[in-house]
Each structure stands twice: as structure tokens, then as C-alpha cells.
Amino acid sequence: MTVTVEPSIFSIVNYDANEIAEVANEMLKLLGMGSKNLTIEVDETVAMSRVIATAGDPIVVHVLSSAFENLKSPLSFSADNARLSLGRGLLRVRDRQSGNFDDAPLDDALSIVESAVWETYCVGRLVKLGLKVHKQRWHYNFRNRHGFNDATDRQFEQIWNADNLDWSQLMEISRNCAT
């Protein structure tokens, strides 16, 4: 298992490549992906928190700088946010490698609704693995994409609490939010 972080030295944000690699190793082991090679590309020129993961050898996770940032202290690193961001990207890769998400678009082609559904599924599972998460943030994101009503809230809970869904089931639940 090799974890590579690019760039190795940061010039805009105050991140340490070794610290990021340490968190990545921790997440790979936590997700049962300890044998995988991983490359993390950090775009430090953009203050957004997007994460795009591509399955392969190595797995490539491309993140915008705020995905790893302590938002209370701009430009500084947050291990908690890095865990959550890497966890979401790596879980999507793990889902794809399971064969149950073959119909899912690539990360950068996911619609905002598809993305919200899958994020909910990933973060719900990360909570069960012990990560610190503010559930209401993800609930609000889900509502923004599916509507503010009781049906949406029920479907959110179903996805949040699940751990063995496939892509077609996720999309079916998402469609049910409108009813």
C-alpha cells in the first residue's frame, strides 16, 4: 500500500503532505481498503470542498483545498474534515468496486441530486464507523435537493441508516421523495 500526496509541499495552504498521508492511511484501514494504493491530488488554488474519486490502481482522489480545511481558521488543516472528505471519496470507490454501482455515473458526472443521495449514504456509514459528523448538515443538503417535506425526511432516514444498498435502490429511494 502506497499513499502519495500531490503537491508534496504546499505554497498557499498550510497543509503537510505527511499529515494528509497519515489520515489517508487511517481511512484506508478503517474502510477495509488497506491494500490499495492511493494518490491524493490537492488543488490548493480553489477554496471549495469538492472531492472527486476515481477507482483504479492507484485510486485517485482529487480534492479542492477546503475539503481538508479548518473553516474556523482559514488555510489551516483539519484532520477531522480530511477524514470525512477522504472517507466519502473512498467509500464511493469501494461501492464502485463492489459491482453494485456499475450504472452510477463517474464522480464528476454525477448530478447534484445523485450526488446528494450518495453522499447521504456514505456519510451515514462513516458515522457508524465512528467519525464525528453533524447530521443536520447532510439532512439540509438532502432536503435542498429533494424538497422540504415529510416524504423527503423519511427517505433521508432510510438512506442514512442503511449499509447494503446498491445504485438502483438509492435512485429508487430518491425518486420516492417526490411522493
Binding site: 490548493e44 488554488t45 480553489v46 477554496a47 471549495m48 488555510l75
Partner: peptide, 15 residues
């Protein structure tokens, strides 16, 4: 201090 952050907020490049 806030304006010393040289990063963009998505109005460049791929975004």
C-alpha cells in the same frame, strides 16, 4: 487577514 487568502472560490479553471 481574510483578503490575504489568495485562493479563488470557483470562478476559475475546471469549476
Amino acid at each position: 487577514e481574510r483578503m490575504a487568502d489568495p485562493r479563488g472560490s470557483g470562478n476559475t479553471g475546471v469549476i
